[in-house]
């Protein structure tokens, strides 16, 4: 079990390394070559002179060869900014002031802030949205999926299939706009946009309810389908017949024997989906004006804020890798077949 964990963590670190390299190449040399955009130029302000660009280049360390730049980027990601860079980027300021300007993910020249602080400012919004939506879609989809599987081809099952089809085929931005127009604008049941921090739980939930529902509906559709098919599979297993032969009641058979086995692939999918959403649910966040990571990424991309965009991509990748490891751990704890191999 410990070896399994160590192997997964090493694998995860390798994936993150590959992503850092891809991000570095994409947002450095490729961007420069393709669009003639260099961070130094962007940082230097409007219509800079060649001399200004050169000075900024030296300031940001962009005059060094690429491999040196990449090596430094990695080192900064792991250990934080070096004293040398701190002195170059924020001369004469205190450590706390400099932390606001420069972090492990670098510095946003558009906002004059560290990318780290931007991510930590916006991440709670994405986290809250994902959390509320995830609870909603699990609560909706798992009971529906189970009942559909117990009574296949029943009216309930057919209605739920229609629900799945609608949920899966409506794009969130379209469905989100409809919900906003009718439920928030016309009826005034929900706020039109915005986010309230968790310090005010009632308002927090009130502001998240509509976007989370729209997000949850889409995922619920997928989860109904997978729960139903998994349950149909496990309900026809021999050990379910054994449970019935023991004299177990239907509820016990369905929950303790069938669902306990059916939920293993659902847990896997759930973990991966959470990881994906925590990296920013761009469409939902933009539609509902929720200033989460996805929203931040769009803003940064529009402003050509390269360090922020790159930072969010890297941060999302780390979250997804972490989610994968957590999924493996949870699966191993739920399924002895994985644990004991």
């Amino acid at each position: 079990m410990v070896r399994f964990l160590i192997r997964r963590i090493l694998g995860g670190i390798f994936v993150v390394l590959v992503v850092t390299l891809a991000v570095f190449v994409l947002f450095g040399p490729v961007l420069r070559w393709h669009s003639n955009i260099s961070p130094a130029r962007l940082y230097a302000g409007k219509n800079p002179s060649a001399e200004q660009i050169e000075r900024v280049s030296a300031l940001l360390g962009l005059d060094k060869p690429y491999y040196v730049q990449y090596g430094y980027t990695l080192k900064r990601l792991v250990l934080g900014p070096s004293q040398d860079e701190r002195e170059r980027v924020c001369p004469g300021s205190t450590a706390a002031e400099c932390d606001q300007l420069l972090g492990r993910f670098g510095s946003s020249f558009a906002k004059q802030r560290s990318v780290d602080s931007l991510i930590w400012d916006h991440f709670p919004v994405t986290l809250s949205l994902t959390f509320v939506a995830a609870i909603m879609w699990l609560l909706i989809s798992i009971p529906i999926g189970i009942i559909s599987a117990i009574r296949p081809r029943s009216l309930f099952d057919r209605v739920s299939i229609v629900f799945v089809l609608i949920g899966q085929s409506l794009p969130v931005y379209y469905f989100g706009l409809l919900a906003l127009y009718f439920l928030a604008y016309k009826l005034g049941w929900f706020p039109l946009s915005g986010y309230e921090p968790l310090s005010n739980p009632g308002q927090w939930l009130y502001h998240l309810l509509l976007p989370a529902s729209v997000l949850a509906l889409q995922f619920a559709a997928i989860y109904v389908r997978i729960t139903r098919s998994q349950m149909l599979d496990t309900l026809s297993e021999d050990y379910v017949r054994t449970a019935r032969a023991k004299g177990a009641g239907e509820t016990r058979v369905v929950i303790r024997h069938a669902f306990r086995n059916a939920m293993l692939p659902i847990v896997t999918m759930f973990g991966l989906d959470l990881g994906l959403l925590l990296g920013g649910a761009i469409l939902i966040e933009v539609t509902f004006g929720l200033q989460g990571l996805g929203w931040l990424a769009v803003q940064a991309a529009k402003r050509l804020d390269v360090p922020t965009t790159a930072g969010i991509v890297l941060f999302s990748a780390i979250i997804i890798v972490a989610a994968n490891i957590v999924v493996d751990l949870v699966n191993a704890s739920l399924d002895p077949r994985i644990r004991l191999e």
Partner: peptide
């Protein structure tokens, strides 16, 4: 009344 089934490999619940 109790029953013994044919395939013991699949007749026991694998996660219990």
């Amino acid at each position: 009344m109790a029953m013994i089934f044919q395939d013991p490999m699949t007749s026991l619940n694998p996660v219990m």
